[in-house]
């Protein structure tokens, strides 16, 4: 459980360098501790030996996409209950349902609103 003095640890997973830079700036300016991975495969490898409080992932990524990442994490002991938010340009109900079925905690449409995103992060870790 996080105390007020410990920053909330976030892992962001997105293959776009621009989006990673944007998220890093937005979240660190609000006091979050941010780690970043370039795709689902890298995230899976990093999460095998590291912990965070919440994961934000894109969907369309090389090697392992967002759906695949969520499914694998939900099958793991360490991250089965970890809050995972999908951050995506995708707008179809089908994809949203697929994310929900895979075990995602929430769905955020790009471009994100920093206030809404940070409020969601604080809400899902409790």
């Amino acid at each position: 459980m996080n105390t007020q003095s410990t920053p909330i640890r976030v892992l962001t997973v997105d293959d776009s360098a621009s989006m990673r830079a944007l998220l890093l700036g937005a979240l660190t300016s609000r006091g979050f501790a941010v780690e970043q991975c370039e795709d689902g495969q890298e995230a899976l490898e990093w999460l095998a030996s590291n912990e965070v409080d919440v994961i934000i992932t894109d969907i369309n990524m090389p090697r392992l996409d967002g759906f695949g990442l969520i499914e694998k994490l939900r099958g793991s002991a360490l991250h089965a209950e970890r809050p995972i938010l999908v951050l995506t340009t995708e707008s179809s109900d089908e994809k949203k349902q697929r994310a929900r079925n895979a075990g995602a905690t929430g769905w955020i449409v790009k471009p994100f609103d920093t206030d809404k995103l940070t409020a969601a992060l604080r809400r899902v870790i409790h």
């Binding site: 905690t105 929430g106 769905w107 955020i108 471009p111 809404k116 899902v124």
Partner: peptide, 13 residues
Amino acid sequence: GRPQSALGTVELF
């Protein structure tokens, strides 16, 4: 300007 769909909507499942 941004369309209504581009305002960062959050949905928690």
